[in-house]
Amino acid sequence: MSDPITPAVSDRICKHMNDDHASAVLVYAQVYGDRHDAEAAQMQAIDPQGMDLTVQANGETLNLRIPFDHPLQDSEDAHQTLIAMIKQARSAPKEA
């Protein structure tokens, strides 16, 4: 059984994403956050409705909220949703 998305689970997911999947976090900011100018991004929190990122773009630090397409049920749903989002983003046509 997966864990509900508590603050502790959010912290665990964010640490894992920032440490092991930083390039994916940047893609979330660029594609889903519509910040194609983002140079770096860190996941600060995740909850059933979305994720909060801190983004570096054009010498500024910005906070960005990216909503999910459905409310997450638990940590396994978060895992599968983040994977689906990165696959979709990487298969999308690039902007000219």
Rank of each mutant, 00 (worst) to 15 (best):
M1I: 09
M1W: 10
S2N: 07
P4A: 06
P7F: 08
A8E: 08
V9F: 04
V9W: 02
V9I: 14
S10R: 09
D11H: 12
R12E: 14
I13W: 05
C14K: 04
C14H: 06
C14E: 06
M17V: 02
D19S: 04
D20K: 12
D20R: 09
D20G: 05
D20W: 03
H21A: 08
V25N: 13
V27A: 13
Y28C: 04
Y28K: 03
Y28D: 01
A29Q: 03
V31I: 08
V31W: 02
G33I: 11
D34L: 11
D34P: 00
D34S: 13
R35G: 00
A38E: 09
A40C: 09
A40M: 11
A41R: 04
Q44V: 12
I46K: 06
P48V: 09
P48W: 11
Q49S: 15
Q49R: 12
M51W: 07
D52N: 07
T54W: 00
Q56A: 13
Q56S: 14
N58K: 13
N58T: 12
N58I: 07
G59Q: 10
T61L: 14
N63P: 04
N63T: 13
R65W: 07
I66W: 07
F68E: 09
D69I: 00
Q73T: 14
Q73S: 14
Q73W: 00
S75D: 10
E76H: 08
H79K: 15
L82V: 08
I86T: 12
K87A: 13
Q88K: 15
R90M: 11
A92T: 14
A92V: 00
A92H: 12
E95R: 15
A96V: 11
A96M: 14
